[in-house]
Design a protein around this nucleic acid. Structure first.
Lengths: 325, 325
DNA sequence: GTAGGTTACTGATGCGCTTAAGTAACGAGC
DNA sequence: GCTCGTTACTTAAGCGCATCAGTAACCTAC
């Protein structure tokens, strides 16, 4: 592997601007306590633009002892397309603070998070849900701060979503609930959390625990599941997510069952398609943009030594009531 | 911002193993031309494990002049959940070659790709579709190799997808096609490409160009669009993607139109839900795992100085024929 | 008029690693 | 018995930047 061609360095900029490399660094970083006259600043910035100079992150990180890179670990499988809006807002908010976001698909067999973190020398690792202890410790040893959307004390987000689904159905008068589990083994952990939330709500309302059925994205199988729930006098189903819920709706049509009269269905995530199903799907939505913004604040806080203080209900999930319930 | 606590360095490992830092580096990198007896190697690796040492990417990159980080730029909005499978496979294949993958959501107002690239000092930037010239040049100046899924000469993937959709419908005997455009302005460019592909196929078959209609994810609006196509004697519609197609199916049901008899519908992306619509949706699928693997190969090739040689039809889109056409 | 402060810089150092160059110890070959 | 080659290392340089410790020039105050 050849060494890449010579790149523009701060020394080049310094030469072009007729100053020292230190001055270039001061100008570019607005280093507090340094007084740079307007004229010099202009010359330096001019040279930067002329040469299309971009400081190398690795050199900066090495010299400064910390980088401006934030690593976001996102769950193995998408939490729906909304994740994009979240990431975008997060990246934008971080950029305002001079930080750079890159993301890593967690759980993949590719490479453990601490390795990735060390490789890019991230100074903060953010995640939507808490990481396991070993990983967290390894990351901290690798020099990264950790930031999550959920406070440790609060109910984990996933569990809360399940609770909201169930509470909605119970409020509508349903007394026996079903739960539609996803088939993908990697979704199992999240699904179990959400199911626990449903069980919480049932227990709290003093009704039977939910009847959970494994499902797959297959119309016939879901038609069967729907009939099974009916037989067991289930009147409403919480689906793991909108995808499962939509598939269930199709399965029900095949079984000649209609939502919400024969079986009420609520999804989770509020994917765009949830508005255009037949009937439109009730679901749980997050304000992901807000989450992105507040997570960015937490990162900045953590970086300046303050305890990241998150809003109580960071993900703020809420019920979207449409025609399927 | 306090300097983070002292982290484990290669000097610490060297001390623990009773060797010099150079030896540690030789062991960890399997540096060719260095003979390390088994016993020494064992001692070093032992110390590494004991201390949970992870080399800092920034220091490595700085010293070696190149990092082992690959940056994947993914389009602004998800190309469906399949993107996950692709990223995963890509990351795994890269990991086998000792490379680390991180991704960046392109197009977001956050921070331009070259800045991100410089910040993490990526040595390769991969992208699903070609980047504009300015960006490409800036990246190259930032010292990154560029790798794409599409060869420059080949038809851009997006255009090809549109062509496949149309060819499928034409082969089924349709003589007047519609095209359902997405409403999101950021999708416009991709949509235009796909539409061009449809137009190509129509021209090639000697039939009228497609009647493109703007749509949004709204059942009523789509019912109206469906009726409009019918009035204009369109018998089959290519949808921008499966999402639009599924919404159209719902709109058609509201307009008392059935697929494929009243209007055939084909989507694109083969999202999981496409199997469970009513009727199941014909669509265009990619072999994303294969793409991930071959893109990783291209990256490795590019890094070892060879020209990245991609398989002719890297994304290899193909028609999935279900009941909606 | 000069001590003391401020402004506007520069020089030197070191971050943690890779790598070229060096070296001590040992065995083989003559 | 001495050289040469090999093995198994070590030493030192330097990657590109941030940052600390200067310092020269100029200004102010008394």
């Amino acid at each position: 592997m050849r060494r890449p061609a010579k790149r523009v360095t701060s020394a080049d900029v310094a030469r072009a601007a007729g100053v020292s490399a230190a001055t270039v660094s001061y100008v570019l970083n607005d280093t507090p306590g340094q007084s740079i006259p307007e004229e010099t600043r202009r010359r330096v910035l001019e040279a930067v633009k002329q040469l299309d100079y971009r400081p190398r992150g690795s050199a900066r990180a090495l010299a400064a002892g910390r980088s401006d890179v934030v690593l976001l670990s996102i769950p193995h499988l998408s939490i729906g397309p909304g994740i994009n809006r979240f990431v975008e807002q997060f990246a934008t908010s971080l950029a305002h603070a001079g930080l750079t976001l890159v993301t890593h698909l967690a759980g993949a067999p590719g490479r453990p998070l601490p390795d990735v973190c060390a490789a890019i020398d991230a100074s903060v690792v953010a995640s939507l849900d808490p990481l396991d202890d070993d990983t967290a410790q390894a990351l901290r040893r690798a020099g990264a701060d950790l930031v999550f959307t959920t406070e440790v004390e609060a109910h984990p987000t996933m569990r809360r979503m399940g609770r909201l689904q169930a509470e909605h159905l119970i409020a509508l008068g349903h007394r026996r609930l079903g739960y539609a589990m996803p088939d993908h083994p990697l979704l199992r952990k999240i699904a179990d959390d959400r199911l626990l939330g449903v069980a919480d709500a049932c227990a709290h309302a003093g009704i039977d625990p939910p009847l959970a059925l494994d499902t797959k994205l297959d119309t016939t199988a879901l038609a069967r599941a729907a009939r099974r729930w009916r037989r067991e006098s289930v009147t409403a189903v919480c689906a793991y997510n909108d995808e499962v819920a939509i598939a269930l709706l199709t399965g029900m049509r095949h079984a000649k069952l209609a939502a919400p009269d024969d079986l009420a269905v609520i999804g989770a995530d509020d994917i765009p398609l949830a508005q255009v199903t037949d009937p439109p799907l009730s679901t749980i939505a997050f304000d992901l943009e807000k989450v992105g913004r507040s997570l960015a604040e937490a990162v900045v806080a953590s970086l300046s030594g303050r305890k990241p203080r998150l809003t109580p209900a960071s993900l703020s999930p809420r019920v979207i009531h449409r025609a399927s319930t």
